[in-house]
Write a protein that binds this DNA or RNA. Structure first.
Length: 295
DNA sequence: GAACCATGATTAC
DNA sequence: TAATCCTGGTTCG
């Protein structure tokens, strides 16, 4: 589920559970055999993220760069120490079936690879498998810098200087704000959900040329992205509805209540009752409320 | 079991 | 703009 918040969570997970540990690196699928051989046996130092790019640093100045694309995913597992260090908790078994073998009481290492495992990282206490990524490669520090130089400011990289100013600068374009927000060279980490939801929350028409937005609107948009995405990192899911816009503000948020417009085409806007619209724009589905986000 | 679709991005035409 | 990468969940028949 890879918008920027997921990648930042992955980065933290790598630091927490593999940081400072020697890692055996393989490519069961074979497509990353050369890269795996370069990393095998090194100590993993830390994970970091910029937008949807994940960087995992190893000793000797080598960095693993991963981009999950639309359907890439990591899965993790390990012993009690691994689960204790994990920032995303013990691995959940999704779609568990009764005929699956029971989890062994004692951790004896990673399971047989299932499907196309591009990379497998194994330490004494746990493992990580990568499947379906669109990018998986080993980079030098200079190459990492080159990748990052192509990216806009990331709402989740709070330590980076001048981010709000960079956001303003890079959104000075005639491109529609809805398309501009998905352009990773303008702002990094925003995907289809965050763009739709933050534009709704800021009452901005997604088709409006970005450069027509005034400074206050851009400020509010940036602040909202920072807030929404930080919440996404904390909670491990995207929830953009304010409690007041949910049936019972006290109750846990059901998936159906999590968004204002994303995947709600044809349904009534939670705030104004207008019918939520969808259109294919630049190859992606764009959702908005004509009532709340008109001019 | 097939078909379709997705929180992404690059490449070719 | 379309094809591609090639996973996994959901929907269809």
């Amino acid at each position: 589920m890879p918008e920027g918040h997921s990648i930042h969570r992955l980065a933290r997970q790598f630091t927490d559970v593999f940081g400072g540990r020697r890692v055996a690196v393989t490519s069961p699928q074979g497509r990353f055999a050369d890269g795996a051989a370069r990393l095998d046996g090194r100590t993993l130092l830390r994970g970091s993220a910029h937008g949807k790019q994940l960087f995992v640093e190893f000793d000797g100045g080598l960095h693993l760069r991963v981009h999950l694309g639309l359907y890439g995913a990591f899965s993790f597992g390990g012993d009690e120490q691994f689960a204790g260090a994990s920032s995303i908790g013990a691995p959940r078994r999704i779609g568990e079936r009764e005929d699956l073998p029971a989890e062994p009481a004692v951790y004896r290492g990673p399971p047989e690879p299932v499907g196309q495992v591009r990379v497998r990282l194994v330490t004494e206490h746990g493992w990580a498998d990568l499947r379906g990524a669109s990018v998986c490669e080993v980079l030098t520090p200079a190459e990492v810098d080159a990748v990052r130089a192509r990216l806009g400011p990331d709402p989740l990289r709070t330590a980076d200087e001048g981010r709000a100013a960079a956001f303003h600068r890079r959104l000075r374009t005639r491109t529609g704000i809805g398309v501009a927000l998905m352009d990773q060279s303008r702002v990094a980490g925003v995907g289809n959900i965050y763009r739709a939801e933050s534009l709704f929350r800021c009452r901005i028409d997604p088709l409006r040329p970005s450069a027509e937005l005034d400074s206050g609107q851009l400020d509010r948009l940036w602040d909202d992205l920072c807030e929404l995405m930080a919440a996404g990192v904390r909670e491990g899911r995207i929830v953009t509805t304010d409690p007041a816009d949910r049936p019972d503000p006290q109750l846990p948020v059901w998936p159906e209540q999590a968004y204002y417009v994303y995947q709600r085409a044809g349904r009534e806007c939670r705030r104004c009752g207008s019918v939520v619209q969808v259109a294919e724009v630049a190859g992606r589905k764009l959702y908005w409320c004509p009532g709340c986000q008109g001019d």
